[in-house]
C-alpha cells in the first residue's frame, strides 16, 4: 500500500499570501473613506481604473510568461498595488496617466524583475515617481478639501474630469471658497517658506487649521487607524512603521527646536501628505523591505530621515515615494550586513 509523502511539517497556518494581501486592501478602507470625504469621489474612480488596469496587466504578463494567471490574480498583490497607486495620485488625474502608472508598476517594476517576490522597488511608488517626474503639473494638482472647496467633486464630475469629457480645467476644483487656488498643505508650506515667510505665518493660511493641513490630518489619521488594525491582525510587524514615524518625529523635532521658523513641526510632518500611508501600507511591503527585525527598524529609519530631508531641503513638497525607493535600494545591503546572531553563535557571526 502506498501513501502520499511530503516533507514535514504537515500542518501550517491558515494565513496565506492572498489573505495577507486581502487584509491589507481591507485595512486601506478607512483611509480611502476619509480621502473620499475630504477630496471627493475622484479617488473611487481612480481605484476602479487602477484595479482594472493592474489586474489585466498582470493577467497579460502571466500569459506571456506562460504561468498560471489564476494563481497570480488570486494572490491579490496586484490588487493592493492598484489601490495604493490610486490613493497616492491626485484624485482627478487623467485616466491615461493612471493607466500608464499601473501598467508601469505591474509590467516593468514587478514582472520584468521576476514577478512577485523578486522586484527590488515598490511597484506603487515606482509608478508614482514615474508619473511625478513625467507629468509634474498634473501630479501636483490636488483638489481643495471639501470644507474649503468652492465646488464639490461629485461622482459624475469625477468621471467627467478623469476621462477628460469636460473641457473645464481642473482649477475650479482647486479654488477655495475664498477664491484662492489651493495647493496641498506641504506644497503651500514649502512655497511660503521659499517666499520668505516663517512657518507660523504659513500656518495661518486657510489650507491649515493652525497645526496641520485641513482634511489631510483626518486622512492620515484614518490610515493610521487602518495600520493599527493591520498590526493587530499581525498582517505587518511594527518595526518599519515605528522606524519611519520615530525618525520623522526625531528629525523634525530637532529641526523644529533649532529653528521653528524654517522648519515644519513634527505634527505637520506626521499628519501631512502620505506619511501614514507610507508608514503602514507602502514601506511595509515585505518584498522590497529588509527582512530582519533590526534591519527593518533601520529600513524604516532611513525612510523617515529621507522623508524629512527631502521635504525640508529638497525640491519636492512630499517625499514619500522617493524615500521609499531609495530605501528599497538599501534593503539588500541592510539584509546582508544586519543579520541576527544565530543560536549558539557569538555576536558577529
Amino acid at each position: 500500500m502506498a501513501f502520499k509523502i511530503a516533507s514535514s511539517p504537515h500542518v501550517s497556518t491558515s494565513l496565506q499570501t492572498n489573505k495577507v494581501m486581502q487584509r491589507v486592501a481591507l485595512c486601506l478602507i478607512p483611509g480611502i473613506l476619509a480621502q473620499v470625504y475630504f477630496f471627493g469621489m475622484g479617488t473611487l474612480v481612480q481605484i476602479l481604473i487602477a484595479v482594472i488596469t493592474c489586474l489585466s496587466a498582470e493577467a497579460a504578463i502571466m500569459k506571456l510568461r506562460n504561468k498560471s494567471i489564476k494563481n497570480a490574480l488570486s494572490d491579490n498583490s496586484a490588487l493592493v498595488t492598484a489601490v495604493l497607486i490610486a490613493v497616492a495620485i491626485p484624485p482627478l488625474t487623467p485616466w491615461w496617466m493612471t493607466v500608464i502608472g499601473c501598467f508601469f508598476a505591474i509590467v516593468i517594476v514587478k514582472h520584468l524583475y521576476g514577478g512577485l517576490g523578486n522586484n527590488i522597488f515598490n511597484p506603487a511608488m515606482a509608478a508614482y515617481v514615474l508619473l511625478l517626474v513625467s507629468f509634474p503639473l498634473q501630479m501636483t494638482n490636488w483638489v481643495a478639501p471639501s470644507e474649503l472647496a468652492a465646488n464639490q467633486v461629485s461622482i459624475t464630475a469625477a468621471f467627467a474630469h478623469i476621462f477628460e469629457l469636460s473641457t473645464a480645467g481642473l482649477d475650479h476644483f482647486r479654488i477655495a471658497v475664498d477664491g484662492h487656488t489651493m495647493a496641498t498643505p506641504l506644497d503651500t508650506f514649502k512655497t511660503d517658506l521659499s517666499m520668505g515667510m516663517t512657518s507660523s505665518e504659513s500656518l495661518q493660511r486657510n489650507v491649515f487649521d493652525g497645526m496641520t493641513g485641513v482634511g489631510w490630518f483626518w486622512v492620515n489619521l484614518a490610515y493610521l487607524a487602518g495600520g493599527l488594525i493591520m498590526l493587530k491582525l499581525k498582517v505587518i510587524r511594527w518595526h518599519i512603521s515605528v522606524g519611519i514615524l520615530m525618525a520623522i518625529f526625531v528629525c523634525s523635532g530637532i529641526g523644529f527646536l533649532l529653528n521653528p521658523d524654517t522648519h515644519a513641526s513634527p505634527m505637520l510632518h506626521l499628519f501631512s501628505g502620505g506619511t501614514m500611508l507610507c508608514a503602514f501600507f507602502i514601506a511595509t511591503d515585505p518584498v522590497t523591505a529588509a527582512t530582519s527585525t533590526r534591519g527593518r527598524l533601520l529600513f524604516g529609519a532611513i525612510i523617515g530621515v529621507l522623508i524629512f530631508v527631502i521635504r525640508t531641503y529638497g525640491g519636492y513638497p512630499d517625499a514619500v515615494a522617493f524615500a521609499v525607493l531609495l530605501a528599497n535600494m538599501c534593503a539588500p545591503f541592510i539584509d546582508y550586513y544586519i543579520r541576527p546572531r544565530s543560536y549558539g553563535h557569538r555576536a558577529g557571526n
Binding site: 502506498a2 501513501f3 502520499k4 509523502i5 516533507s7
Partner: peptide, 9 residues
C-alpha cells in the same frame, strides 16, 4: 522526496 517513485492509489 520527489524522486521517490510512489504512485498514489
Amino acid at each position: 522526496l520527489a524522486s521517490i517513485p510512489v504512485t498514489l492509489i
